[in-house]
Nucleic acid binder design. Structure first.
Lengths: 232, 232
DNA sequence: GAGATCTAACGATATGGATCAATACAGGAG
DNA sequence: CTCCTGTATTGATCCATATCGTTAGATCTC
């Protein structure tokens, strides 16, 4: 709505972007400033697509504000949500290093601000500050670990367990019993490999058992984390 | 059976290990030699465990000969195969950078030779030869990509499709219509998130339709890759 | 604020694939 | 060569969950 798509001329905006992200936050202020100088800001409004499958990628994107949904489209047209990017997260990395084209879509779920760094600039930074590579490697190994766990839970756990585990994880990562789902039932269903109906039913079941309480569509309070965690 | 577990004193053995792996193969011969000097050889016999969940990792392992199975154990004791390591592959990297403990097991599927590099040595190499980091990043991004695809296929495709896709992939990566499964039905079932019975049935069905032909337990010839690929 | 549209809830049914059970087929050991 | 143990096939049953159809809210738009 307000000054949509207009690039901020001040450098303070860019600074925010690079300073919040773990890959850069170990740098000295002067170095940070140098990195910030290579970034460009970009604003997306809700529903806008940052990149599409098939497009060549040549930038790293760092989320500063808002939320992005990364998903794939199967041949049959089904949408599968890969992950939700929140402030501090980055994406675009695959295409950066494999010089491949994107095989997923990134769409703004709400008004979103991000910074972009070009492929060449990033590679210069790697040479100049080798620790950045190490940070990236660390970040990648964490994500690899997460995704492998995700595979494990798809192959070994049933739907009910996956829903329960998702709630527990959300509660743990937000350090609170009050969780706010970052996406709609439809997207959550896609993420968890099930259908919106089943999500509804499972949540209703958990509520019946007194383990959770649902407020509006997105807000959930965990009442009995013990029982939910038993699914582990 | 023969000189099992006995470390080779010659350096030629170590050289082979590091020279075949993509992360090092861009180095000059003299540099390679330096890297090789930091590695130690190790032999495993069939069924031997390289590392277990819960153990602290402090080495990178590079497979030189043989095959390793990396798997997790769920609470309920179910085994889920994450990947099969073949010559040239490496593992141990997660724990290397996240200073975490292993959360999976690595077991030799047959007599296997590998090289180990300690965490400290690897970090020195990173500083000395920054390109090694870039290779690792590239390798990681490829694997991340693969695993994310795997998640997608678990959530969007049914079992029959996953089996078909697996066959097609194997044929593509081996550049041949003759494929040899790298693992037993049981492990393949675990890898594909199904049961050995279902694997048998699906393969039988494909054979019925004249799309494949099974020789012994492991050898399969693809007769009609078009129809198999339709599942894509 | 009213109509249109998108999202969620819920019931009924159908089915893919897990599970259980029994048999056949290796491959290794003596 | 024969026993034995692990692995694969085949059949019968059953259950979780996808699918379909409908209703009810919620949200957006003009």
């Amino acid at each position: 709505m307000e000054n949509n798509g207009v690039k901020q001329p001040s450098s303070s905006h860019e600074h925010l972007c690079v300073s919040i992200v773990p890959i850069f936050n170990h740098l000295e202020p002067a170095e940070l400033k140098e990195v910030a100088a290579t970034t460009k800001g970009r604003n997306l409004s809700k529903g806008e697509i940052l990149y599409r499958a098939g497009e060549k990628s040549n930038s790293l994107y760092i989320i500063h504000k808002g939320k992005l949904k990364v998903y794939r489209l199967t041949e049959s047209g089904k949408e599968q949500v890969i992950r939700i990017l929140q402030p501090g997260d980055f994406t675009g990395e695959l295409a950066l290093f494999t010089d491949n084209v994107h095989d997923s879509y990134a769409e703004a779920m709400e008004a979103t601000e991000l910074c972009t760094i070009s492929s060449e600039d990033i590679n210069e930074l790697f040479l100049k500050y080798p620790q950045i590579s190490l940070k990236i490697i660390k970040e990648f190994s964490l994500r690899l670990d997460q995704v492998e766990h995700q595979v494990t839970s798809f192959t070994t756990e049933d739907t009910e367990t996956r829903v329960a585990l998702y709630l527990v994880q959300q509660a743990e990562s937000s350090q609170s019993k009050e969780i706010r789902l970052p996406m709609s039932r439809k997207d959550l269903a896609s993420f968890l490999g099930t259908t919106p109906e089943t999500i509804s039913r499972k949540l209703a079941k958990f509520e019946d058992k007194g383990w959770i309480q649902q407020y509006d569509q997105r807000a959930i309070r965990i009442l009995d984390i013990e029982n939910l965690s038993i699914y582990k």
